[in-house]
Computed example of a mutant assay.
Amino acid sequence: MPENPDVRSKLRSAILRGAYAPRQRLIEADLAEEYGASRFVLRNALIQLEAEGLVELTPNRGARVREITPAEAVEITEIRQSVEGLVAARAAERVTEEQIIFLRQVGEDMREAIENHELMRYSELNSLLHGTIRDIAEHAAANRVLEQLNGQMVRHQFQLFLVPGRPNTSFPEHLDIIEGVCTRDPHRARAAMETHVGSVIATLTQFAEATPVH
């Protein structure tokens, strides 16, 4: 069987897009056939995904998709708050005139998406804004941390997206982040980002408090 060295990223993408449900068992033999990889390569991929917090490996029981509880989501986002604040501050120090124009346009596009009730478009612009700020900051270590944290949070981010009125709450927060970066004010950019992620924490905390403990 030909090897597939990219099996980790393909399996990771499948988990993040919801192809496998939380707590679903991941049968190594089936996955090896599906992804065209040997059991050895597949096993290594699962070990790497366990390190990212996406998979659980249990002796004698195999692998399953890890379920992130609302309480864990709060803790993960608390870490993200500090790292995202650092990234925003660095972006404010490094942003170019061309990037300023782009960020301000993203803000206007977000405004238009809200006015037209295009929630999916707003969600896409939200991802674009945060990704652009990370690209501007060029902080490799922070980006690695955020990629791992955001990977664990995919399902909870979708839950946040469904909260009524959430875009109207987050939009002014996003504008403040944009202003902080575009005016090259690292303190304002950091504070605005931490305030924004803090509002996410508050919403996730409500989910956690409403979720029964098993």
Rank of each mutant, 00 (worst) to 15 (best):
I136M: 04
D109T: 00
Q48T: 12
N143M: 11
I114M: 02
A91Y: 01
E118F: 04
N150T: 13
H130P: 06
Q48L: 11
R61V: 12
I100C: 02
I68L: 01
G151Q: 09
E115V: 12
Q148S: 14
I76Q: 03
S82K: 02
A141R: 09
R144W: 07
L162D: 13
G107E: 04
V154I: 14
I136L: 03
N116W: 07
A141M: 11
R64F: 05
E112K: 04
I68M: 06
A89H: 05
V87E: 09
Q81V: 01
I76Y: 07
V145R: 10
E56W: 06
E56M: 11
R43S: 08
L103I: 11
E108Y: 07
L128M: 15
A142P: 03
R155G: 08
R144M: 14
L146M: 11
L146R: 06
Q99K: 02
L129F: 09
I136N: 01
L149E: 12
N44V: 10
A88W: 05
E115H: 05
L57T: 07
R94A: 04
R90S: 09
N116M: 13
R94D: 00
A142G: 15
I79R: 11
G85F: 02
L46A: 09
L49K: 07
I68R: 01
H156S: 08
R64G: 00
Q148T: 15
Q159I: 13
H139I: 14
A45T: 15
R111Y: 06
R104P: 02
Q105R: 11
L49A: 00
S123M: 06
V145D: 03
A91E: 05
R134M: 10
N116I: 03
I114A: 03
E72V: 08
E118N: 15
S127K: 14
V163P: 11
R80P: 04
A71L: 12
I68H: 01
V83K: 01
V106S: 03
Q99L: 03
I68F: 08
E56L: 11
R104D: 00
G53V: 10
N60V: 09
V106D: 01
H117Q: 09
I47G: 02
M110H: 00
I47S: 11
L86M: 12
E97Y: 03
V145M: 10
Q48H: 15
R94L: 13
